[in-house]
C-alpha cells in the first residue's frame, strides 16, 4: 500500500524541482511539435518555391526558407519525428539487450560477469560514429543503420548500469529472504531486482535519448543517417553549410532545435535523478 504514497511524494517533489519542470516542458513541447507535424505544418515540406528561396525569417515564413524555397519551420517540425524515432528506438535496443545482460551478469557473477565486462570493453572500443561508418560502408546509409549503430553503442551503457544497480541490490535482506524461500535467481530478478532499479534505468534512458538525438544529427550531417526527401535536422545543417554566407538562418534554426531538445532532455534527466535517486543528489549538490 505504500507505493502510491511514495509516488505521490515523488511527483510533488518533482514539480518543485526546477530542472525537472523546465526539462519536462521542453520535452513535452517537442513531442507535441512532432505529433502536430503529422496533421499540420505551415507549408508542405515537399513544396519547392525557387523564387522564394533563401528568404530570412518573415511573417510568411517564421524561420525563413532554404535554398529550394522550402519553409524551414515545417522542415524542423517534420525533422523532429526522425530525431525522436531514431533516438527512441536506439534506447529501446540498448535497454532491451543491455539490461537483461547486466541483470544476468549480476545474478550469475563469475565467468559470465567477466565475459560481460569484456564485451563492454569491446563495444566501447567502437565509438557510435565508427560503427556507423562500418555499417554504412557495407549496407549503405539510412535511418535504420543509424539506429543500429547508436543502439549497439547503448547496449554496454545499459548493461553496465543494470549490473551495477543489481549488484548493490543482491545483498539486501529482502532479497536474501526471497532466496531463502527457494525462489530462483530469474524470479528474484524479475520480481525484486528489476522493479527496484527502474528509477536508475529511467534516468539513464533520458541521458541516452539525448545522446541519441546528438548522434543522429551528427550521422545525418555527414550523410550516414536518414536520406532525402525525409527532412532531418542534421542534413538541414549540412545543406546550410555552403549557404552560410548568404543565409545564416538556414544553419541557425535547425541547430537551435537540436540544442533546445538536448538541453530539455538533459534537464529532465537531471531533475529525475534528483527526485528518484537521492543518493546522487547528495553527491552532486
Amino acid at each position: 500500500m505504500s507505493a502510491p504514497t511514495e509516488w505521490q511524494a515523488n511527483i510533488s517533489k518533482a514539480f518543485s524541482n526546477r530542472s525537472f519542470v523546465i526539462g519536462l516542458t521542453i520535452t513535452a513541447l517537442l513531442a507535441l511539435m512532432a505529433a502536430l507535424s503529422f496533421v499540420w505544418t505551415p507549408y508542405a515540406v515537399g513544396s519547392f518555391d525557387i523564387l522564394g528561396k533563401l528568404k530570412p525569417p518573415s511573417s510568411a515564413h517564421w524561420l525563413g526558407t532554404d535554398h529550394f524555397g522550402r519553409d524551414i519551420l515545417s522542415m524542423i517540425m517534420v525533422g523532429s519525428r526522425n530525431s525522436i524515432a531514431v533516438a527512441l528506438v536506439s534506447v529501446i535496443i540498448g535497454a532491451g539487450i543491455g539490461v537483461p545482460l547486466g541483470l544476468w551478469a549480476a545474478a550469475r557473477g563469475g565467468l559470465i560477469d567477466e565475459a560481460l565486462m569484456r564485451f563492454n570493453d569491446l563495444v566501447f572500443a567502437f565509438p557510435a560514429l565508427l560503427s556507423a561508418v562500418m555499417i554504412t560502408a557495407v549496407f549503405g546509409p539510412g535511418a535504420v543503420n543509424a539506429i543500429i549503430a547508436i543502439g549497439i553503442f547503448n547496449i554496454p551503457v545499459f548493461a553496465r548500469v543494470a549490473r551495477g544497480a543489481a549488484l548493490s541490490l543482491w545483498p539486501r535482506e529482502y532479497i536474501l529472504a526471497a532466496r531463502a524461500s527457494g525462489k530462483s535467481s530469474l524470479l528474484i530478478t524479475i520480481e525484486h531486482i528489476l522493479p527496484n532499479m527502474m528509477n536508475i534505468l529511467v534516468v539513464q534512458g533520458t541521458i541516452q535519448f539525448s545522446l541519441g538525438i546528438l548522434a543522429e544529427a551528427g550521422l545525418s550531417y555527414v550523410g550516414l543517417g536518414s536520406q532525402p526527401p525525409m527532412p532531418s535536422w542534421g542534413r538541414m545543417l549540412f545543406e546550410a553549410q555552403t549557404m552560410i554566407g548568404m543565409a545564416p538562418h538556414m544553419a541557425l534554426y535547425p541547430g537551435l532545435a537540436i540544442v533546445i531538445t538536448v538541453l530539455g532532455l538533459n534537464l529532465l534527466g537531471d531533475g529525475l535523478r534528483d527526485v528518484l535517486d537521492p543518493k546522487m543528489r547528495r553527491e552532486r549538490s
Binding site: L214, L237, Q241, V259, N266
Partner: peptide, 22 residues
C-alpha cells in the same frame, strides 16, 4: 556548461565559420 553539453560540435563549427571566417 549545461548548454555547452547540448551543443553539437558541427553546428558550433558552422557558427564559428560564420563569425570568424565569413
Amino acid at each position: 556548461a549545461q548548454v555547452g553539453v547540448a551543443i553539437p560540435n558541427f553546428w558550433f563549427a558552422l557558427l564559428l565559420v560564420y563569425v570568424f571566417a565569413v
